[in-house]
């Protein structure tokens, strides 16, 4: 007899908490649906049409024509190749470098550790335009510091046109992307390394494990969720490389990426028939690649 009122009260409590939870969620949900879900749906629908800025509404339904045309478009295929080069080079190097730096600094005393975190995080919080302008000065063909140093030390005879030569331009972009991408992973890894269960580390050391074994068998598995998160965000950021391209090369010198080509097609090439639909089709393909790669990363991390 005494149990029933208590259970009824619990249910009421659970219901109230659930309602409260959803109500707290509601404002964010409204923005998420309005600014993420609905635009995504519009993008998918537009990708199947010949929508452009000159016709009102959605345009005519063209089925998969935009997607078929994309695979015959040399510029898109080159942009896709460049995007994959950026992802393939940038993601592992960012992860490996941040892990290395974090391992080296996480045991330092508080102030020194904070100083290092600040140094590596600074490019992340600095505006991308400001960062890019400084890099542009350094890469300058005529007055840049790189050419000055290399020429002064006799390593090169003639100036290298870093951003104007397709042999170098993409790698210069990757280098900037690298410096702006390592900040967050370093902070996350420092935190993850600090949270590793020390009793397990000590137990392994007592059992005679080497430093490498301690890292690989004890610390690394505990950092796997952090690694997964870093892999996913770095992959997405690399796929979406746009501002650097727009500000430095306008997609020239072999640096065109899918994100830049989407922008160019949608807003610059307004004479092209159905340019909105075509750009949206590129967006859908990019999203599919990002989704597939992220899923693969999740699966591999889960197996590990």
């Amino acid at each position: 007899m005494a149990k029933q009122p208590k259970s009824a009260m619990s249910r009421a409590l659970v219901r109230r908490e659930t309602i409260s939870g959803y109500l707290f969620l509601l404002p964010s949900l409204i923005f998420f649906v309005g600014f993420v879900i609905i635009p995504m749906v519009i993008c998918i629908v537009n990708s199947l049409t010949d929508a452009n800025m000159n016709t009102q509404g959605l345009g005519n339904f063209v089925g998969l024509k935009n997607f078929i045309d994309l695979w015959k478009d040399d510029t898109f295929l080159e942009a896709l190749k460049n995007t994959f080069v950026i992802v393939i080079v940038s993601v592992p190097t960012v992860c490996a470098f941040s892990l290395w730096v974090s391992s080296a600094i996480y045991k330092l005393n508080g102030k020194l550790l904070s100083a290092f975190r600040c140094i590596f995080y600074l490019p992340v919080v600095t505006g991308s335009v400001a960062v890019t302008v400084v890099w542009k000065w350094m890469y300058d063909n005529y007055t840049g510091v790189f050419n000055y140093v290399l020429k002064s030390t006799g390593l090169i005879e003639k100036n290298i046109n870093w951003l104007g030569d397709s042999k170098y331009a993409l790698w210069c972009i990757i280098l900037i992307l690298f410096t702006t991408s390592v900040g967050q992973p370093i902070v996350l890894y420092v935190s993850a390394l600090g949270n590793v269960d020390q009793s397990l580390v000590e137990a392994a050391q007592v059992d005679g494990a080497t430093n490498f074994q301690v890292f690989w068998k004890v610390k690394w598995p505990q950092m796997m969720p952090t690694t997964l998160y870093i892999l996913v965000i770095t992959t997405i950021n690399s796929f979406q490389c746009f501002a650097l391209i727009q500000l430095l090369t306008s997609g020239g010198s072999g640096t065109n990426t899918v994100m830049y080509y989407i922008y160019y097609t949608a807003f610059k090439l307004t004479e092209k028939a159905g340019h909105f639909g075509y750009a949206n089709a590129m967006g859908v393909i990019l999203a599919i690649f990002i989704g597939l790669l992220s899923a693969l990363q999740f699966k591999l991390a889960k197996e590990k």
Partner: peptide, 15 residues
């Protein structure tokens, strides 16, 4: 004379 792919018109004016 260089074909300079790092300069646009505005950049060339600066140089």
């Amino acid at each position: 004379i260089t074909f300079d792919a790092s300069l646009q018109g505005g950049d060339e004016i600066v140089k």
